[in-house]
Protein backbone atom coordinates (compact mmCIF):
# COMPACT_ATOMS: atom_id res chain seq x y z
CA UNK A 1 0.00 0.00 0.00
CA UNK A 2 1.26 3.44 -0.87
CA UNK A 3 1.84 5.75 2.07
CA UNK A 4 0.65 9.34 1.96
CA UNK A 5 1.65 11.91 4.56
CA UNK A 6 -1.00 14.54 5.28
CA UNK A 7 0.22 17.87 6.63
CA UNK A 8 -2.91 19.90 7.32
CA UNK A 9 -3.77 22.08 10.29
CA UNK A 10 -7.56 21.92 10.15
CA UNK A 11 -8.52 18.86 12.25
CA UNK A 12 -11.83 18.05 10.58
CA UNK A 13 -10.37 18.24 7.11
CA UNK A 14 -7.45 16.10 8.23
CA UNK A 15 -9.81 13.44 9.53
CA UNK A 16 -11.95 13.43 6.41
CA UNK A 17 -8.86 13.29 4.21
CA UNK A 18 -7.65 10.31 6.18
CA UNK A 19 -10.91 8.47 5.58
CA UNK A 20 -10.95 9.45 1.92
CA UNK A 21 -7.43 8.18 1.30
CA UNK A 22 -7.98 5.00 3.26
CA UNK A 23 -11.13 4.25 1.26
CA UNK A 24 -9.18 4.86 -1.91
CA UNK A 25 -6.69 2.21 -0.92
CA UNK A 26 -3.81 4.31 0.36
CA UNK A 27 -2.22 4.31 3.78
CA UNK A 28 -2.56 7.81 5.21
CA UNK A 29 -0.28 9.18 7.90
CA UNK A 30 -1.31 12.36 9.71
CA UNK A 31 0.66 14.88 11.66
CA UNK A 32 -0.30 18.01 13.51
CA UNK A 33 3.19 18.84 14.66
CA UNK A 34 4.54 20.92 11.85
CA UNK A 35 7.91 21.50 13.43
CA UNK A 36 8.71 17.83 13.13
CA UNK A 37 7.15 17.39 9.71
CA UNK A 38 10.48 16.62 8.11
CA UNK A 39 11.25 13.95 10.72
CA UNK A 40 7.91 12.45 9.87
CA UNK A 41 9.08 12.16 6.27
CA UNK A 42 12.38 10.62 7.37
CA UNK A 43 10.74 8.11 9.71
CA UNK A 44 7.85 6.98 7.56
CA UNK A 45 9.31 7.36 4.11
CA UNK A 46 5.96 8.18 2.47
CA UNK A 47 5.30 7.82 -1.24
CA UNK A 48 3.62 11.21 -1.42
CA UNK A 49 3.08 14.30 0.75
CA UNK A 50 -0.08 16.40 0.82
CA UNK A 51 1.04 19.76 2.14
CA UNK A 52 -1.19 22.66 3.15
CA UNK A 53 0.50 25.98 2.39
CA UNK A 54 -1.17 28.12 5.03
CA UNK A 55 -0.67 26.35 8.29
CA UNK A 56 -1.26 28.33 11.44
CA UNK A 57 1.82 30.43 12.13
CA UNK A 58 3.80 28.18 9.86
CA UNK A 59 4.38 28.09 6.16
CA UNK A 60 4.06 25.01 4.03
CA UNK A 61 6.68 26.46 1.77
CA UNK A 62 9.39 26.28 4.39
CA UNK A 63 8.42 22.68 5.18
CA UNK A 64 8.71 21.92 1.49
CA UNK A 65 12.14 23.51 1.33
CA UNK A 66 13.40 21.51 4.27
CA UNK A 67 11.96 18.25 2.90
CA UNK A 68 13.55 18.91 -0.46
CA UNK A 69 16.95 19.11 1.20
CA UNK A 70 17.03 15.37 1.71
CA UNK A 71 14.16 13.82 -0.21
CA UNK A 72 12.61 13.75 -3.65
CA UNK A 73 9.24 12.53 -2.39
CA UNK A 74 6.41 13.93 -4.56
CA UNK A 75 4.66 16.87 -2.90
CA UNK A 76 1.17 18.14 -3.72
CA UNK A 77 0.40 21.58 -2.34
CA UNK A 78 -3.08 22.33 -1.05
CA UNK A 79 -4.14 25.88 -0.46
CA UNK A 80 -7.18 27.87 0.56
CA UNK A 81 -5.89 31.10 -0.93
CA UNK A 82 -5.53 30.50 -4.59
CA UNK A 83 -3.34 33.38 -5.57
CA UNK A 84 -0.98 33.24 -8.48
CA UNK A 85 1.99 33.99 -6.28
CA UNK A 86 1.31 30.87 -4.21
CA UNK A 87 0.98 28.79 -7.33
CA UNK A 88 4.22 30.09 -8.75
CA UNK A 89 6.07 29.56 -5.52
CA UNK A 90 4.68 26.05 -5.15
CA UNK A 91 6.28 25.01 -8.41
CA UNK A 92 9.54 26.88 -8.01
CA UNK A 93 10.12 25.27 -4.60
CA UNK A 94 9.83 21.82 -6.13
CA UNK A 95 6.17 20.93 -5.63
CA UNK A 96 4.76 18.39 -8.06
CA UNK A 97 1.20 19.67 -8.18
CA UNK A 98 -1.01 22.37 -6.75
CA UNK A 99 -4.69 22.18 -5.89
CA UNK A 100 -6.86 24.77 -4.24
CA UNK A 101 -9.72 24.45 -1.77
CA UNK A 102 -12.53 23.71 -2.07
CA UNK A 103 -11.42 20.78 -4.17
CA UNK A 104 -13.54 17.85 -5.24
CA UNK A 105 -12.45 14.62 -3.60
CA UNK A 106 -12.46 12.81 -6.93
CA UNK A 107 -10.29 15.50 -8.48
CA UNK A 108 -7.86 15.26 -5.57
CA UNK A 109 -7.66 11.49 -5.93
CA UNK A 110 -7.11 11.82 -9.67
CA UNK A 111 -4.27 14.30 -9.12
CA UNK A 112 -2.70 12.02 -6.51
CA UNK A 113 -2.76 9.02 -8.80
CA UNK A 114 -1.46 11.13 -11.71
CA UNK A 115 1.49 12.38 -9.67
CA UNK A 116 2.22 8.89 -8.35
CA UNK A 117 2.06 7.48 -11.86
CA UNK A 118 4.38 10.15 -13.17
CA UNK A 119 6.94 9.81 -10.41
CA UNK A 120 6.87 6.04 -10.12
CA UNK A 121 6.88 5.32 -13.83
CA UNK A 122 4.03 4.20 -16.04
CA UNK A 123 4.30 0.44 -15.78
CA UNK A 124 2.84 -0.02 -12.32
CA UNK A 125 1.21 -3.44 -12.37
CA UNK A 126 -2.04 -2.23 -13.87
CA UNK A 127 -4.36 -4.72 -15.37
CA UNK A 128 -4.41 -4.80 -19.14
CA UNK A 129 -7.12 -7.40 -19.57
CA UNK A 130 -10.38 -8.00 -17.77
CA UNK A 131 -12.34 -11.20 -18.12
CA UNK A 132 -15.86 -12.08 -17.09
CA UNK A 133 -18.10 -14.91 -18.26
CA UNK A 134 -15.80 -15.67 -21.20
CA UNK A 135 -15.79 -12.08 -22.43
CA UNK A 136 -12.41 -10.37 -22.49
CA UNK A 137 -11.92 -6.63 -22.27
CA UNK A 138 -8.64 -5.35 -23.72
CA UNK A 139 -7.90 -2.08 -21.95
CA UNK A 140 -5.21 -1.01 -24.39
CA UNK A 141 -7.00 -1.34 -27.70
CA UNK A 142 -10.67 -0.76 -26.77
CA UNK A 143 -11.54 -4.26 -28.08
CA UNK A 144 -13.68 -7.03 -26.72
CA UNK A 145 -13.12 -10.70 -27.42
CA UNK A 146 -15.48 -13.61 -27.07
CA UNK A 147 -14.25 -16.99 -28.17
CA UNK A 148 -12.50 -16.42 -31.48
CA UNK A 149 -14.31 -13.29 -32.57
CA UNK A 150 -13.36 -9.72 -31.81
CA UNK A 151 -15.20 -6.44 -31.88
CA UNK A 152 -14.00 -2.85 -31.59
CA UNK A 153 -15.98 -0.54 -29.34
CA UNK A 154 -16.28 3.22 -29.38
CA UNK A 155 -14.70 5.12 -26.50
CA UNK A 156 -18.05 5.68 -24.82
CA UNK A 157 -19.23 2.09 -25.17
CA UNK A 158 -15.93 0.79 -23.94
CA UNK A 159 -15.84 2.98 -20.84
CA UNK A 160 -19.41 2.02 -20.09
CA UNK A 161 -18.64 -1.68 -20.26
CA UNK A 162 -15.41 -1.20 -18.34
CA UNK A 163 -17.31 0.39 -15.46
CA UNK A 164 -19.83 -2.46 -15.34
CA UNK A 165 -16.89 -4.88 -15.31
CA UNK A 166 -15.44 -3.06 -12.32
CA UNK A 167 -18.69 -3.53 -10.44
CA UNK A 168 -19.56 -6.97 -11.71
CA UNK A 169 -22.47 -8.65 -10.01
CA UNK A 170 -23.82 -5.37 -8.65
CA UNK A 171 -26.85 -3.52 -9.86
CA UNK A 172 -25.26 -0.28 -11.00
CA UNK A 173 -27.58 2.75 -10.87
CA UNK A 174 -27.81 4.81 -14.05
CA UNK A 175 -26.71 7.94 -12.20
CA UNK A 176 -23.54 6.17 -11.00
CA UNK A 177 -22.71 5.28 -14.60
CA UNK A 178 -23.27 8.82 -15.82
CA UNK A 179 -21.13 10.25 -13.03
CA UNK A 180 -18.37 7.76 -13.76
CA UNK A 181 -18.46 8.68 -17.45
CA UNK A 182 -18.20 12.40 -16.58
CA UNK A 183 -15.09 11.62 -14.57
CA UNK A 184 -13.75 9.94 -17.72
CA UNK A 185 -14.39 13.09 -19.81
CA UNK A 186 -17.53 11.70 -21.44
CA UNK A 187 -20.15 14.32 -20.74
CA UNK A 188 -23.43 12.60 -21.64
CA UNK A 189 -26.96 12.75 -20.30
CA UNK A 190 -29.46 10.07 -19.46
CA UNK A 191 -30.77 9.70 -23.01
CA UNK A 192 -27.35 9.30 -24.50
CA UNK A 193 -26.63 6.60 -21.95
CA UNK A 194 -29.59 4.59 -23.24
CA UNK A 195 -28.42 5.07 -26.82
CA UNK A 196 -24.90 3.92 -25.96
CA UNK A 197 -26.29 0.97 -24.04
CA UNK A 198 -28.40 -0.12 -27.03
CA UNK A 199 -25.40 0.07 -29.34
CA UNK A 200 -23.20 -1.81 -26.90
CA UNK A 201 -25.79 -4.56 -26.60
CA UNK A 202 -26.11 -4.98 -30.34
CA UNK A 203 -22.33 -5.24 -30.67
CA UNK A 204 -22.29 -7.85 -27.91
CA UNK A 205 -25.00 -9.76 -29.70
CA UNK A 206 -22.96 -9.79 -32.89
CA UNK A 207 -20.26 -11.50 -30.90
CA UNK A 208 -22.76 -14.04 -29.68
CA UNK A 209 -23.00 -12.69 -26.14
CA UNK A 210 -26.65 -12.40 -25.25
CA UNK A 211 -28.17 -11.30 -21.99
CA UNK A 212 -24.88 -10.22 -20.48
CA UNK A 213 -26.24 -6.86 -19.41
CA UNK A 214 -29.53 -7.05 -17.58
CA UNK A 215 -31.75 -4.03 -17.12
CA UNK A 216 -33.19 -3.51 -13.67
CA UNK A 217 -36.17 -1.31 -14.33
CA UNK A 218 -36.03 2.04 -12.62
CA UNK A 219 -32.67 1.25 -11.07
CA UNK A 220 -29.87 0.46 -13.44
CA UNK A 221 -27.89 -2.30 -15.08
CA UNK A 222 -26.18 -5.46 -13.93
CA UNK A 223 -23.76 -7.91 -15.44
Amino acid sequence: MLKILIIEDEPFIREELEILLRNAGYEPICTDNFLTAEDEVKDNNPDLVLLDIHLQEYSGFSICTSIRKFSKVPIIFITGRNTSIDELQAFTLGGDDYISKPYHPSVLLARISAVLKRTRGQGRDEEQMLEYKGLTLDLRSYKIRYGASEEELSKNEFKLLHYLFQRRGEVVPRLDIIEYLWDQDVFIDDNALSVNMTRLRSKLEQLGVTDLIRTKRGVGYQI
Partner: peptide
Amino acid sequence: IHEVKLPITGIRLACHNQEQGNNR
Protein backbone atom coordinates in the same frame (compact mmCIF):
# COMPACT_ATOMS: atom_id res chain seq x y z
CA ILE B 1 -14.06 33.95 1.56
CA HIS B 2 -10.93 31.95 2.19
CA GLU B 3 -12.24 31.06 5.63
CA VAL B 4 -15.54 29.84 4.27
CA LYS B 5 -13.77 27.63 1.77
CA LEU B 6 -12.53 25.45 4.62
CA PRO B 7 -15.94 24.23 5.76
CA ILE B 8 -17.00 23.78 2.14
CA THR B 9 -14.01 21.52 1.62
CA GLY B 10 -14.82 19.72 4.84
CA ILE B 11 -18.45 19.11 3.89
CA ARG B 12 -17.41 17.93 0.47
CA LEU B 13 -14.96 15.41 1.88
CA ALA B 14 -17.45 14.24 4.49
CA CYS B 15 -20.06 13.90 1.79
CA HIS B 16 -17.75 11.81 -0.33
CA ASN B 17 -16.80 9.62 2.60
CA GLN B 18 -20.28 8.59 3.57
CA GLU B 19 -22.26 6.50 1.18
CA GLN B 20 -25.79 7.69 1.32
CA GLY B 21 -28.47 8.88 -1.02
CA ASN B 22 -28.37 12.52 0.05
CA ASN B 23 -24.87 13.11 -1.20
CA ARG B 24 -25.82 14.20 -4.66
